[in-house]
C-alpha cells in the first residue's frame, strides 16, 4: 500500500532549514519513496548522518535517527549494525563529510562490506559553511576558498568505493528522479555495503560561484552534464571534464561483515580457547 510521504516525516520540524531549491529535499523525497516502495517498518530503520546541510536530513524523518559528528556517520552506523544486525541502517552524508573528513571511514566501511547503505549527496561544495571547495569540487570550478579556480583533483567516489570493496555502487542525480529512486531501492535491498552518489544542486553556495543563479538553472546543468556509461566510454578525456557518468557500476555478491562475525561467534563458542 502506497503511503503519503508525510507518514515518514516529523511534521513538526517543517518547513525544513534548506534553501529554496536545495537538492537535499529532493534526495530525502527519493529515499522515502524507495522506503515506501519496499514497505519497510519504520521501527526497523536507523538513519544516521554526519555534519553539513545534507546531514540535517535525519532530523526530519520518523525513524531511529542520529545526526552525529563530522565525517563519522559510518562508524556510528557500524556500531548500530553490529549490535543489532536486524536493523536496516541508512547513512546520509555530504561530499565533504564523506570524502574529506570521513574519507577513511568510507573506504573502511566498504572494505568490511558491512550491510549499510551510504547515500552521498554530492553538491560539490561545503554549503553550510558558505561555499568552500570540497574533494568533489571539479578542477577549475570556484569556491570561496578557491577564488582563482580549484587546482585540486576531485575524487571519483564510484571508483573509490569499488576499489575499497563495496558490493553495490551507483550514481544518480536529483534531476533524473525516477531512476534515482530505483538505484536507491536496489542499494537498500543489497546485502553488503552499498553506495549511491547523488549529483545534487546547491544554488546558493555552488551555483552563485559558478555562474548558475537558480535551482532550475542548476538542475539543467546537472541534466546536461550527466551521461550514460555508453556515451561516457566514447568521450575524450577533455570531454569528460565537467561531465558525470550515471547509472549502476557494481553489483556483486560477497560475504557480508555481520554474517562473517556471526561465524566468528560460532567458531569461538565451539573451540576451547586455551590459556
Amino acid at each position: 500500500m502506497k503511503r503519503d510521504i508525510e507518514y515518514y516525516l516529523r511534521r513538526e520540524a517543517f518547513p525544513h532549514i534548506w534553501c529554496a531549491g536545495c537538492g537535499n529535499g529532493i534526495v530525502l523525497g527519493a529515499i522515502l519513496r524507495a522506503i515506501d516502495d519496499l514497505q519497510w517498518d519504520k521501527n526497523e530503520i536507523a538513519m544516521i548522518s554526519g555534519i553539513g546541510c545534507s546531514s540535517r536530513i535525519t532530523g526530519y524523518v520518523d525513524f531511529c535517527t542520529m545526526n552525529t559528528t563530522h565525517g563519522r556517520a559510518l562508524p556510528f552506523a557500524t556500531g548500530i549494525k553490529m549490535a543489532n544486525p536486524e536493523m536496516k541502517v541508512i547513512v546520509v552524508m555530504g561530499d565533504g563529510d564523506c570524502s574529506a573528513i570521513g574519507g577513511n571511514h568510507f573506504i573502511h566501511a566498504a572494505r568490511r562490506n558491512i550491510d549499510l547503505t551510504a547515500i552521498i549527496v554530492n553538491n560539490m561544495i561545503y554549503g553550510m559553511t558558505g561555499g568552500q571547495y570540497s574533494p568533489l569540487t571539479p578542477s577549475g570550478r570556484f569556491g570561496t576558498t578557491a577564488p582563482y579556480g580549484n587546482i585540486d583533483q576531485s575524487f571519483d567516489l564510484v571508483k573509490l568505493a569499488t576499489a575499497a570493496g563495496a558490493s553495490y555502487v551507483a550514481r544518480g542525480t536529483v534531476y533524473h528522479i525516477r531512476p534515482l529512486i530505483s538505484l536507491i531501492k536496489k542499494a537498500f535491498n543489497k546485502k553488503g555495503f552499498s553506495v549511491v552518489e547523488i549529483i545534487s544542486d546547491c544554488p546558493i553556495s555552488y551555483g552563485k560561484m559558478n555562474r548558475m543563479q537558480s535551482a532550475p538553472e542548476m538542475l539543467k546543468w546537472i541534466r546536461d552534464s550527466a551521461v550514460s556509461s555508453k556515451v561516457w566510454e566514447n568521450l575524450s578525456e577533455e570531454e569528460k571534464k565537467d561531465k558525470y557518468v550515471i547509472g549502476e557500476f557494481l553489483d556483486v555478491e560477497k560475504p557480508e561483515y555481520t554474517e562473517l562475525y556471526a561465524m566468528v561467534v560460532e567458531r569461538a563458542q565451539k573451540l576451547e580457547v586455551g590459556k
Binding site: W18, G25, I26, A30, V174, Y175, I177, I181, L219
Partner: peptide
Amino acid sequence: GLCELRCPDFAIT
C-alpha cells in the same frame, strides 16, 4: 508526478 518527485520541500502533490 515529476513536480511532486522533484519538489525539495514536500510542498506539492
